[in-house]
Design a protein around this nucleic acid. Sequence first.
RNA 1: GCCAAUGUAGCUCAGCCUGGUUAGAGCAACUGAUUUGUAAUCAGUAGGUCGUGGGUUCGGAUCCCGUCAUUGGCUCCA
Length: 620
Amino acid sequence: MRILQLHCDSIEYTPTKKEIKSAEDIENPQTQRLEELVVVFVAIEDGDDSSVAQNAITQIKNSMEKIGCKKLLLYPYAHLSSNLAKPSTAMSLLKEMESGASELEVSHSPFGWTKSYKLQVKGHPLAESSKVVTKDSESKDTEITSDALKGESTIRSYWKILSPDGTLTNIGDFDFSNHKKLEILAKYESAKSRAVDQPPPHVALMKKLGIADYEPASDSGNMRFFPNGRLIKSLIERYVTDRVKEYGGYEVETPIMYDSEHPSMVSYFNRFPARQYNIDSEGKKLFLRFAACFGQFLMANHFQLSYKNLPYKLYELTRYSFRREQSGELVGLRRLRAFTMPDCHAFCKDIPQAVDEIKVRFDLSQSVLRELGIEESDYEMAIRFTEDFYNGNKSSIEELVKKHGRPVLVEMWKEKFFYFVLKWEFNFIDNLGKASALSTDQIDVENGDRYGIEFIDENNSAQHPIILHNSPSGAIERIIYALLEKAAKDSKEGRKAQLPLWLAPTQIRIIPLNEEFYDFCEKLTDRLSANNIRVDIDDRNGSIGKRIRDAEKEWIQYILVIGEKEANSENLSVRDRQTGNVKEISFDDFLTEINNQTKEKPFTGLNMPKHLSKRPQLMV
RNA sequence: GCCAAUGUAGCUCAGCCUGGUUAGAGCAACUGAUUUGUAAUCAGUAGGUCGUGGGUUCGGAUCCCGUCAUUGGCUCCA
């Protein structure tokens, strides 16, 4: 059966004459006019039966629910196929479809008549679609066909929930009452239903805190990072890189642009047409990388690898990777066209080694996020695999779910369509119920071959490695987005919004009561700075209240007001932003308190003038 | 990319529907006074081709069309 489905403002049709002998009898062949409806042109083909009709009407109803339309006109339309069913069969299947949609306002135009018609189709993207429905495309489970690739064949996904105890439940049967965020993720992924009418809070925060802003002179989705933002970003970058190196990744650097006509790129491209930035240069068709994969694969191609070297891990922090995402998809720091992505590939000798390795990287990813300030309760896990891979590796998959400790969303494919057989990711759920992937890992069974990467096995024969693709944190910009969204949530729920101390652009603000105490403040600043703390001095002429207020607006955790009392005391009077109280504490105890929050994290000095009087106001 | 909303001073916004003196306010900046004890000291000065291009009009921030950007929804997200 072939169907062409159009969401219309109106249709007007007039039966003119019977086209075939068996045409339907109708009482008055008058002009009919219908408004605000979905018109479905249907060609019923040889071999179609009742199940096809049921399947087709279900699909039509699903898509109508999506666009919120309740009126349906089935319009028999022979010209869609050259392999038509017999009119009698067609007629009965058409009626069956009509009765299968009885909850809608449904009708059909007369069968077997020549008709003139006029229709006005709506302009939205879902307004027009065509489908071919055949017997074997039916399915038992909840199913959503995702257009993984525009214009190419579709793959069918089965959405399920996998619990830590190993039970696999259809999404429709799962009780989400204790798993609200997972429900959001499941809906987001499978039903794509969202309703929000406000900008995400991090967009205002990234500007207010002088972190990042849009750059109108660039392309959309290419941000500029102010000194504060650069400092935060560079600390996160360093932290993630340190952790990956500790895990055993070797850091490399690869070009940001590649020749799309280079032999290794061609087959990859044909299979995965990406939305990339293209650059023509001296006859070469170059494109900007959208991931670190090819750079590392092309490099690994030149390594002489033995099975004894494996697993072997290459790592790059790409600043930037570029994806020309649809303009309507770009939002603040959540989705960008230029982003910084840590990407670690592990070359493994076989699936068992890959499966062992993926567990290590799973732990690494969980730990990296936690240390960056993103708790396990902030994200939900999704795991995607082929049915075959699941059946062969049930216990390992269940082990990953156990590590997460909560049910996870599963997308299962009947057959491998992408280059991987398994992929998992952690999805951060923000204040507005939007999901976006942070950490991820994949088991890639194709690119070893495609890029000609080889290792020599125990029997002296050349093999292609299985490749894991892991980003332990996801895009660095997205981590900042998640931290800001979390802070916004704290603020909304009455807590004080704050960045982790090790990421704070200013960790301590010193406020002299008046000029008399400047010297003392300078010396105190030097003492603190010598202990790797970012300290600045508000030497502006203003009231104490005003300067405290400004420090609060910058989310500065510790404020030291310096006056007569402090200048003559061994101890410090520290105002802690979380409590708003001033406490007296010895210099060493204060250092310990700070150190407890920043230990094992990278440090860099202030990225702004130490004196606020020397600092431009950033108003964005 | 599609549909919608928004775009006025460095920032946040008013004015627009119903066209009509020199386009307003608060914050920030600058100058001066003030020398301050834990979330906003006072006064003054300066700052705008109203996103951008075109049209209608005697006259456009205001009405119309195009375009760019941001945000929301859709689609997408290997």
